[in-house]
């Protein structure tokens, strides 16, 4: 941003303090899911997220279900058929899903950054190998492999699932970062640094990495979003962690119990709504980061 300050004043009609609106709305949405998890634990009994802790099949407070039972404030969002309180399920499940996705996203982005840098830097030695491997890995439908792996491994915990998902989601960040490193190598300031005698490590960490940060962040958000997607997929197929409530396992049990046709919309609808907020938030953050990382988009958005 420093170079824009030196522009002549006449070219600047209004002070350039444009807020990156998509980024902030996105962060707020994700933040509100985190707050639900943090504040909810303080004010609500999360023990009710487990079966038989509440009367089953209650509608949300004030509504009456097909059998004429009216929901009460004791379970404001209703309960499902094994007697879990939906509010407690959301308070426990939403952060679980988010946490799992963040772990998976961090691991796959880290692998992507390392491999992408190695491939982009040593064009003649490691690059063809890494490119071939990531081309191959990219073609494999990740969900299909994950299905086999998980059904063999059996019951998994949150972190095992995160690592499994990350193990099949690194090719995308690797390809993206490799492409960026390759184009950055040719840019003026990197060439200048090379001519000034900077060591490869200096070029990587001082020149390139800081400039790539918004890009890596965007890649990370995409990986998180992909991890949620993979997790939901596995959980809907009945392969997720069964003992810990997450958004996906809740939707999965709702579908298995035909909640859609029993009019129990709160059972599948509420976790889906949280997921919509989650995906929407991640998408907005990504659009916002894109505006920072990609000057062309920034210019266009400013028109």
């Amino acid at each position: 941003m420093t170079e824009t300050l030196t522009l002549p004043a006449t070219r600047r009609r209004r002070p350039r303090r444009r807020v990156n609106r998509p980024l902030w709305i996105g962060l707020t949405l994700i933040g509100s899911i985190l707050m639900l998890g943090v504040l909810g634990r303080l004010f609500w009994d999360t023990g009710m997220a487990f079966p038989a802790e509440a009367p089953p099949n209650l509608p949300p407070a004030g509504l009456t279900n097909t059998r004429g039972v009216t929901g009460t404030l004791a379970h404001p969002l209703g309960t499902e058929n094994s007697g879990r309180d939906m509010l407690a399920v959301l308070i426990v499940g939403a952060p679980n899903t988010l946490l799992m996705a963040i772990v998976a996203g961090s691991v796959s982005t880290l692998i992507g950054v390392v491999l992408g840098f190695v491939a982009g830097f040593s064009r003649n030695r490691a690059d063809p190998v890494i490119r071939l491997v990531s081309d191959v890995a990219y073609t494999i439908p990740p969900l299909v492999i994950l299905i086999v792996v998980q059904s063999a491994v059996g019951e998994v915990g949150l972190y095992t699932m995160a690592l499994l998902i990350a193990a099949f989601d690194w090719p995308r960040p690797t390809r993206q970062i490799r492409a960026q490193v390759l184009s950055m190598r040719e840019s003026g300031y990197v060439r200048t640094a090379v001519m000034a005698g900077a060591s490869p490590a200096e070029i990587m960490f001082r020149e390139m990495l800081p400039n790539l940060l918004p890009f890596i962040a965007a890649s990370f958000i995409l990986a998180v979003s992909g991890a949620v997607l993979a997790a939901i997929g596995l959980e809907v197929l009945g392969l997720g962690p069964t003992r810990i409530p997450t958004l996906g396992t809740t939707i999965s049990s709702a579908i298995d119990s035909a909640a859609i046709f029993r009019g129990m919309w709160w059972w599948w609808g509420l976790p889906t709504l949280v997921l919509v907020v989650l995906f929407g938030g991640l998408l907005l953050i990504n659009i916002g980061l894109d505006a920072i990382a990609n000057p062309r988009v920034r210019k266009e958005a400013g028109q």
């Binding site: 949620v228 997607l229 997929g233 939707i251 579908i255 889906t272 919509v276 995906f279």
Partner: peptide, 12 residues
Amino acid sequence: IFTALPPVLAAV
């Protein structure tokens, strides 16, 4: 707006 959704949820 639907872009942010996974196909499973759209199906539901």
